[in-house]
Design a protein around this nucleic acid. Sequence first.
DNA 1: CTGTTAGCGCTTTCAC
DNA 2: GTGAAAGCGCTAACAG
Lengths: 371, 371
Amino acid sequence: MTVTLADVAARARVSPATVSRVLNGNYPVAASTRERVLRAVDDLDYVLNGPASSLAAATSDLVGILVNDIADPFFGIMAGATQTQIGGPGDGSGRAGGEKLAVICNTGGSPERELTYLTLLQRQRAAAVVLTGGAVEDPAHQAAMSAKLARLADAGTRIVFCGRPPLPDSDALAAALTFDNRGGGRRLTEHLISLGHRRIGYVAGPRERTTTRHRLEGHREAMRRAGLDVEAEGGGEGDGVRAGGDGAEPQLTVHGPYDRRSGYEATLELLRRAPDVTAIVAANDTVALGACAAVRDRGMRIPQDLSVAGFDDLPFSVDAVPALTTVRLPLFEAGARAGRIAMGKENPPPGGIATIAAELMIRGSTAPPRG
Amino acid sequence: MTVTLADVAARARVSPATVSRVLNGNYPVAASTRERVLRAVDDLDYVLNGPASSLAAATSDLVGILVNDIADPFFGIMAGATQTQIGGPGDGSGRAGGEKLAVICNTGGSPERELTYLTLLQRQRAAAVVLTGGAVEDPAHQAAMSAKLARLADAGTRIVFCGRPPLPDSDALAAALTFDNRGGGRRLTEHLISLGHRRIGYVAGPRERTTTRHRLEGHREAMRRAGLDVEAEGGGEGDGVRAGGDGAEPQLTVHGPYDRRSGYEATLELLRRAPDVTAIVAANDTVALGACAAVRDRGMRIPQDLSVAGFDDLPFSVDAVPALTTVRLPLFEAGARAGRIAMGKENPPPGGIATIAAELMIRGSTAPPRG
DNA sequence: CTGTTAGCGCTTTCAC
DNA sequence: GTGAAAGCGCTAACAG
């Protein structure tokens, strides 16, 4: 029924072992033999049995890419870039040579699903795993992740973090490419301050994520350096105790998911709490878009009445009206580099970790405050 | 070294077969035995060997999702939705039960890569494959796809098309969920015509894709019905012979990739060719965004000087300024349904094919032409 | 309900 | 440079 390697061997009048060697190309085989085998493969329309091959070789050609939300271009761009370095170019025959199969796994930001996917990949004996985006900071989850990753690494799976800080103790087993979220956040707020803004609202991401924390810390650092003490403004939210436990959440910060709606609602809330804010900084561009909508719905103009800024510089940000001031993250380049490291085509950065610069993009959505 | 099912069996004092039965849960096992086994699994931190299991069972738990461009939310939303129906919810243990591993494969719109991924999936003995988005209409490629899909179906892989028309002869082996691109395109242009527009520019997608063709056909049907014969306007592009071979491309149509830049440049070109156009219809929302940018850069206002419309209703479209008139496609719902069909949780539509309605969303970017 | 017995299709020493 | 043989770890009849 289904054609096996033995069938190919019979037709090419060689042993199964030889066919295997030709297919894997990692062993000297006489040119004439190779050709005979290849022809038999085509004649029979043979396709290697992946599971059998993985079982015998104790390794598979799967590479996993974990993302928080594949509907978000932030992840789509990175994951797509990673995949370009992993799937072979394809030779047009559709025959598929030694390519790896890059698979994108959508965790939805859920720690449980993240762990489950890792188990699934471990079960498949994945060749490598790339973890993208912010991590959840819950200690229990971090411990579980460390343990799981250690076991994966142990089994020979290469681990790469992309746009994600390394786990506390996993520095040894994984390479990490992390974005300078803190620096980017700081420079963005410095830009606003230099324009003359003093009361700046901040729409942060979900509380327990590293990305959220780092961007917010950058913002606060800029404020503090300018003598605008965010903590002193406190008294804020009802639910306003930070995970870090360093007191009440400042009134000018609102947390929410990384989506448009959150930006919209948080901005309305901010405007209610502090009608005197002159600028809104959003956790990312998607959130910023929601913020812009809220500002407009309140009848205010951007940037004349209120400045708005985002983070990431997703493709649509330049098309916002006015174009969004934001922080550019080289998502594609980072994703591609992670893919190369995962494939062993490129060495991990020295020390296992590289910080990728974030570039401030000043556009039309920010301007000096009125008056 | 690496712990196997036999180790678990030994520790639980049962036979390997019993362990297998407990793990797969598809066979009656005494509660007490099950518990003993499960404990042994946890104690030993055992993870099933996927390849071995797939080999023995002659089927794997992989489900492939093919997309043209994962960086495009159009695909991200569909793929994410499909994945929600395939990956189990995760039980928090990270242990992973009978879940399937849904894997997203990014073809980049290349027919070769599409075929290669299919081969890779075939090699892995994938349980199902979901193909999303427009297909390339090249006959050679279609034939190759039909052949490959037939072989996959033959091997027991379930095939589902999502937002993609079925292949000419593969109606029997695959379920298809297709968007009413033609109807949506027609209604969108009818809307413009009803506002009073007569000279309407069309920024089409890449020439050889079904999505492009269907949307364009809808547009032209509306024009024709209104007595605005697009063909008669001809004389157009230098490279203007359609794949269908039905004569020169009308002057008011420009083809290009489904990206922002294409929208920008095509719009500039359209405005150059026909300064009297009063509306631009774009192949999708991303292209429309580029079109808007071009219009603004030419110093014209939307919609006062020129109306612009898109297609898909991606999340950012409502945030464009003015909000984009477009055609809403239920991407998430379609993706989820495709996932359910792929999993066998839902029956394929009667006749194997269902057409999903497209809803016209009238927003601020379209208005009557001036004067 | 549980154990025994064969493989699944491939890779990989080890000889020749 | 090529063949023979021994598993890789699991599942699926088949008995009991």
